[in-house]
Design a protein around this nucleic acid. Structure first.
Lengths: 358, 358
DNA sequence: CTGAAAGCGCTTACAG
DNA sequence: CTGAAAGCGCTTACAG
């Protein structure tokens, strides 16, 4: 029976109108198999007249592919992820893939639910910026169930089968720290959300995966100090929640230390804006009295005075590469090839907020 | 025949393992209909053991709902849309809806394709920030085909059946202009991407829908000047492409006018950052020698010195309301109720970049 | 090149 | 509460 008024016209309706079988109509419309020019024309005309739209659900159920990739991030409103997301869509759309987006708000349960739902919706693959590098069982299961996963921005312990596209955070933070060391700074403060990893990181030989970017940056900072033969002082590592206000307070704590740092490094763009504000409010002159380094090259960093020295992350490219990685794997070519690991370099951009220690 | 090794286990496999019919297994797993406690337990256990994941495609094909909403924006990387998008996901996810995201890059053809694909994927509804307010046929067709559409941030001519969630741009720009007028400014420059609408807007009685926010802001500016009995000078309206560099140049043109403005209003956050930069580089002191007003309350506006006076748009709420609007319509309650039109107010936040004309 | 038939994996009356 | 059967709208061998 035909669904004439209930919903949208089906292939049956089109086939009937064109005077062919549904098989032929499907071939003409779907661009597969062989169809005579004459049949094709009649089908296309009928489809246009009826306002026919293919039902992708039915097609996907048969073909096994939805041409949809899942993208899971912790916060789309963070410029870093917003840019990465654009990188992903910019490679996905031209390739004929749609993006199913989930924002987890850094909640692992939300991430687990997202992965489940995406599996049920039969996405072809998933790109995920994991909320917690130590929680990866759901991702492992997803891969085992045959859904390719690309880890974005952060590796996850126990998910070694996934492709990985990250930034060399440890090296980047090291660069920034060395830059300050070369300027003569000996007491360098850090504003980070990974302060609680301090103890774990100090234990030597701790090379396991599963650290958030901020923790890796903390490690880069610590290593650079050690290599310079400087003592690491825990009071110089100020922990903040992941928001501007908390970073403001953390930076304030550094500045009011009995022996305050002569330079401050922030491990992230959100924290940097809060810390920069705190330094402004402290009345200290940048860079004469204190040097400041941020992470991520947001537009505002060149608008403030003095312009901020930053570690510039290739956020857009990160997304681009993750998208390509996934599409490549879906292409079948590399179907079950061994996981690829791409690590992009961040660049230190020296501007006016860093200067020699007076 | 069972798909035992080919793919993931199906309901048939679960039913067999649990010793019940697929109908019963489906009821137990899907949470619909009546199932005895005993049967439910056996089914759930079997499903867990097999690692069963429901196939949403099959379910959706029958139920007619995918629990997915399409979201179309011009640029996810723009903080304004990034925030709106988060508003949408924040209301969609808790309600059990996923978001299918398309970035059009302001390209109408991309938008048309997006709408088609989303229809074919049978999204339950679409939220769209249209690329061109004058091009709405594809949206109209979508609505006619039974897919609810909510217009975000911009109305589209000829799509009167859609719900609408916008900001009162004309009023907001008027407020900003009046603020400058009250400070004694008589020559107020505008940096906008809608400069080419200048002629059309000046013709009185032009009340048709289908103007981009920037054009509405231009209109608000023009009206405020007229109401103040001031002549409108075309040379004070500097047109820019939608990027920082172009805004930098446009602002530069204003400043090098024979008789330059004593105040500049920017109709958008991207343009504002470029214009602010141009003023900085001009050497003019803000606000002593020139006042500056921006749009959108980005974090950087309080980081620059002097802090920027801005029109603050409720970007997050815009997304939230659009999401709610759509979900409400999907709830059936308001199924075919007449279209709702929500207009949110933007707020003028006066800071240090505006002062009395000297 | 074309069509009849089977089948993708579910849900939904319907009868018991 | 349970199950056999029909059906959602397509694509895919298979035979002609």
């Amino acid at each position: 029976m035909t669904t004439e008024r209930t919903g949208s016209p089906s292939l049956i309706d089109v086939a009937r109108a064109a005077g062919v079988s549904t098989a032929t109509a499907g071939r003409a419309l779907g661009g597969y198999g062989q169809v005579s020019e004459r049949a094709r024309e009649r089908v296309l005309r009928a489809a246009a007249e009826l306002g026919y739209r293919t039902n992708s659900l039915a097609r996907s159920m048969i073909t096994g592919s939805t041409h949809t990739i899942g993208v899971i991030v912790t916060d789309v409103a963070n410029p870093f992820f917003a840019m990465a997301l654009r990188g992903i869509t910019d490679v996905a759309h031209p390739a004929g893939f749609e993006v199913l987006l989930v924002n987890t708000g850094r909640n692992v349960e939300a991430e687990q639910r997202a992965v489940t739902v995406m599996s049920e919706k039969r996405v072809d693959g998933i790109i995920v910026a994991a909320a917690r590098p130590s929680r990866g069982r759901h991702l492992k299961q997803t891969i085992d169930a045959g859904v390719p996963v690309v880890l974005l921005d952060r590796e996850v312990s126990g998910v070694s089968e996934a492709d990985t596209v990250t930034i060399d955070n440890e090296h980047a933070a090291g660069e920034a720290t060395r830059h300050l060391l070369e300027l003569g700074h000996r007491r360098i403060g850090l504003v980070t959300e990974a302060g609680d990893e301090f103890g774990r990181l100090r234990r030597p030989g701790n090379r396991r995966k599963g650290l958030l970017p901020s923790a890796l940056r903390l490690r880069g900072y610590l290593r650079a100090l050690e290599e310079a033969g400087l003592p690491v002082e825990e009071s110089l590592v100020a922990t903040a929640q992941y928001d501007r206000e908390s970073a403001y307070e953390a930076a304030g704590r550094l500045l009011s230390l009995p022996e305050p740092p002569s330079a401050v490094l922030c491990t992230d763009n959100v924290l940097a804006s809060g810390a920069y504000r705190a330094v402004q409010d402290s009345g200290l002159r940048i860079p004469e009295e204190i040097s400041v380094v941020g992470f991520d090259d947001e537009p505002w960093t060149t608008l403030v005075r003095p312009a901020l020295t930053v570690v510039e992350q290739p956020d857009y490219e990160l997304g681009l590469r993750a998208g390509r990685q996934l599409l490549h794997r879906l292409d079948g070519g590399s179907g079950s090839a061994k996981p690829q690991s791409v690590r992009l370099r961040a660049t230190l951009v020296v501007r006016d907020s860093t200067a020699c220690r007076r």
